[in-house]
């Protein structure tokens, strides 16, 4: 609640003040019309729901995302058993994720097999772009959904597997839906989230969308060939990113000029080399 004027109950704000919700809420804060408390029958006497005589409290104590997290762990085990290095690419739309993946696959060459899971609300354009490189790709369309979840990735892996396209000892690259908010909450079973920030965006994005940068293990600053034409302050962007995720590793690159791509390839190769194959239980 806003300490200045006492407005609002949630985190959403307008000009620093909590938002007022016009819609009526089902709130547990006792409304004036709450019937008088009556002692419970039986054993329950604490936190008795008003107006009922047999209410029971069920302790649940369950994480809201527990089903996703369980599936993500199952995915991680499955990928680990195959010796796969799995990355979840997250960014706003237009940062150049697909272009980066296409370029990455071309530069990676035949070092190991590569497969890609593409996530978009609609169209199979991205998967087609990936397939043009020769790598296997499966397209997830989330429809109205704003993020991939672990169950979608499991199904995508099944589909690759059914076509004998799920590699062993290689790379599985997952391109999430372009969205700097929602994908941060969903573990897909990846080794790392890689967040991409292009220099045509604002350097303050890490502070505006802190959850995503906090969830990432690597920041790629893309399109740096455009820097001479822009006012983007790379050092400031890095400083902001490290405010939400201390010591976040950063690689600056341009697929167009090739600058930084060697460092990125070296990071990938180190990740692949560090994978220890864990046989499925």
């Amino acid at each position: 609640m806003c300490v200045t004027c006492g407005c609002g109950g949630g985190d959403a704000q307008i000009d620093g003040h909590g938002m007022r919700y016009a819609r009526p809420r089902r709130s547990a804060a006792a409304p004036a019309s709450t019937p008088a408390f009556r002692p419970a029958h039986g054993t329950l006497d604490a936190r008795h729901a008003p107006g009922t005589s047999e209410a029971q409290i069920l302790r649940i104590e369950q994480d809201i995302l527990s089903d996703n997290d369980a599936q993500a762990n199952a995915n991680r085990e499955r990928f680990g058993a195959r010796g796969l290095f799995v990355l979840n690419f997250v960014s706003s739309p237009g940062s150049g994720k697909t272009t980066l993946l296409v370029d990455t696959i071309r530069r990676w060459g035949t070092q190991t097999p590569v497969a890609v899971v593409e996530g978009d609300q609609q169209t199979a354009f991205d998967a087609e772009r990936i397939r043009a490189t020769g790598a296997a790709a499966v397209q997830i369309n989330t429809g109205k959904g704003c993020h991939l979840d672990a169950h979608m990735v499991a199904q995508a892996a099944d589909q690759l597997d059914a076509k004998a396209q799920l590699p062993s000892d290689g790379l599985l690259l997952i391109e999430n839906v372009g969205n700097l908010v929602c994908p941060a909450a969903f573990d897909l079973g990846e080794a790392h989230k890689v967040v991409i920030l292009s220099v045509t965006e604002g350097e303050d994005k890490p502070l505006k969308y802190p959850d995503m940068f906090r969830a990432a293990d690597l920041l790629l600053i893309s399109k740096i060939d455009l820097l001479p034409h822009l006012d983007f302050d790379v050092d400031l962007a890095v400083r902001y990113a490290r405010q939400v995720r201390p010591e976040l590793p950063v690689i600056r690159l341009s697929t167009r000029s090739g600058e930084g791509c060697d460092a990125w390839q070296a990071w990938l190769a180190a990740g692949v080399a560090a994978v220890t194959k864990v046989p499925a239980a």
Binding site: A49, Q56, I57, L58, R59, I60, Q62, D63, I64, L65
Partner: peptide, 12 residues
């Protein structure tokens, strides 16, 4: 954290 802590139910 984001958790479901408990619920109050009416049996029947």
């Amino acid at each position: 954290q984001m958790r479901v802590v408990d619920v109050v139910i009416e049996p029947g």
